[in-house]
Design a protein around this nucleic acid. Structure first.
Lengths: 191, 191
DNA sequence: TTTTGGTTAGTGATTATTAACTAACTTAGT
DNA sequence: ACTAAGTTAGTTAATAATCACTAACCAAAA
């Protein structure tokens, strides 16, 4: 990834966040980084490959944090909190990323892309499920509810909080509200 | 709403579900209902007004069920379940609606539209919050967690379940899984 | 001297939308 | 009952604008 490629990717994310996928045109993109339209093609072979790069970028992020957190010797609830925090930090750093990652709409046009985002979501789900299962075995998390249901609740709440943060135009402190939410979830699921 | 207008709206929802907002073109739409492109304009003055009609349609649905359910003399948990069920029924009836309603991406291009969908979400949130508050007063729902956090958890889980149902190409029984989820949430939030 | 990263000018395809026209049906006046 | 006028819902043909993308050229850096 060259500097210019990163610049293009960031501008693309920004554009999607502002105007939706229909706002991501080569014209808008080139205007944003102050070059002419054909200059974009010196750095990406097509518009789709820009979207692929964005997705690949985020995939790297999730792979890194999940492998790092899973390997640690912490309690299940602590692991969940660490994942929460990692996401909130990332989104606080790059708010416009939310619009891209939490919207499969964007990738619906291209089958290749929609598969990619679906696998991202399911990988995340599996991670949460396995952490919860462990927590249940260790009698840290309540056992009367299926781990899949708990994972659904945890992921769903986080996603909605982030989505609300986005629609509020990032008006509140995501990290702070995220911590509040985690405490509520902790109270609810721990044994 | 004439019959033709309804036909157009349904075709539009279908198209969005299949190919995303970028698949919703007047050409595709006219092909779907087997008329020429200009014929569409005999029934809607613009493409945007079709989206407005879809949103208005769903707004009517939510307004109807919420006024109906809120007026009943039921426990808070029962009310929540009835809301859940009403949504699941609606989505089971018109699966493609999910892609439209749960995707603000689609309406991001137009400020008027994005405001509409945001107000839909916040109206829903307020409804859940007030029901939960009542349930807390009646000592039916646990009091140690803020009603806003509980609303976030309830709505978030439902949204994610529906979203998963969509990405699975409606592969499982939404009503059945919805009931399972409700039972889990019930166990978690009741006093 | 070759490579890198830009430019100008243009491609064909597609976009939403409009103009002009028409057949079929409805309504009102005689 | 019959005709005239108007409405409805479609058509063909065309509009300007925009889309992603390309060819050919150029200057500066390696």
């Amino acid at each position: 990834m060259t500097q210019r490629q990163n610049e293009i990717i960031n501008a693309a994310i920004q554009l999607i966040a502002e105007k939706g996928i229909q706002g991501l045109t080569i014209k808008n993109l080139s205007k944003a980084i102050k070059v002419t339209e054909p200059a974009i093609y010196r750095h990406f072979e097509s518009k789709t490959s820009i979207l692929v790069a964005i997705l690949e970028n985020f995939k790297n992020f999730t792979a890194t944090i999940s492998s790092e957190i899973l390997s640690r010797d912490e309690s299940a609830l602590d692991k969940i909190f660490m994942i929460y925090r990692a996401y909130y930090n990332k989104f606080t750093e790059t708010p416009s990323l939310v619009s891209v990652i939490f919207s499969d709409e964007i990738f619906k046009n291209d089958k290749n892309l929609s598969k990619k985002i679906a696998s991202l979501l399911s990988a995340n789900e599996e991670m949460f499920c396995s952490i919860i299962k462990e927590g249940q075995k260790a009698k840290e998390i309540r056992n009367d509810i299926d781990n899949k249901q708990i994972a659904l609740i945890i992921m769903g709440a986080m996603r909605l909080l982030v989505k609300k943060w986005e629609t509020s135009a990032y008006a509140f402190d995501l990290k702070k509200e995220g911590k509040k939410l985690f405490n509520a979830i902790k109270a609810i699921i721990q044994k």
